[in-house]
Design a protein around this nucleic acid. Sequence first.
DNA 1: CCGATATTTCAATAATTGTTGCAATGTCAA
DNA 2: TTGACATTGCAACAATTATTGAAATATCGG
Lengths: 123, 123
Amino acid sequence: MDHVTASRTLSALAHEHRLAVFRALIAAGPSGLAAGELARGVGIGATNLSFHIKELERAGLVRSWRVGRSIRSNVEVDAVRRLLEFLIADCCGGKADLCGGIFVEVSSLCCGSAEVSNPEFSS
Amino acid sequence: MDHVTASRTLSALAHEHRLAVFRALIAAGPSGLAAGELARGVGIGATNLSFHIKELERAGLVRSWRVGRSIRSNVEVDAVRRLLEFLIADCCGGKADLCGGIFVEVSSLCCGSAEVSNPEFSS
DNA sequence: CCGATATTTCAATAATTGTTGCAATGTCAA
DNA sequence: TTGACATTGCAACAATTATTGAAATATCGG
């Protein structure tokens, strides 16, 4: 990840509503949440949520797909892993005597990015 | 960490120059870097750098102290750890069958926050 | 104390970002 | 096909954030 991408990705997260959306989606796991559920959960209007979801997608942090009348969204776990790796790269110049060990075990970050087909919503 | 603090902390990082400063400081480790070195490294003016360092301090990500004529700055490693923990809290609702394991081993993040007394610069 | 070096403060200006309501689009069930 | 529901696009407006130069503050060596 280059520094321009990283700062755009951080900008996407650096907003109270988008952060709330992101965390709700992280907690929801691969099956994600519908836009309506998110809007209600975060407490903002549908228009506003739509704008913020777009921002998260533009940053590559979130992916959306249609399920019936709803659009569900999901966290792109790989993008999060890359971001965290970039943030703390070369920590302490990589010197083992300053860094007590590998600081972040990001390779096994959260659950995989597996798609979930939810029969309850399938069209 | 609460969500307001987290989004402020992310805002501090979500800027190309501040991110460059942060990463340079992460790589520099506990002894940090002087403002002048940072300004030259990042390629911005002293005034501008001063502003951005203040932002990073305000967010609790960076700490500064005077050494002779210079002001050196350092990353507050604990703040970074808390931020990363907050970001991916409750991943997949904590369900082990979705999350392949503990996703981020943040407790041993980077080097400690040990102060470094550099005799070369001591007053 | 004086001149040189390092950094910060202030004030003005420029640029970006967030919010809202309304109309438009797409999907479903009857 | 129609009416209801879910989401998005647009446009206007409000608010925040970034950059710059010049002057001020603090430290050091002589």
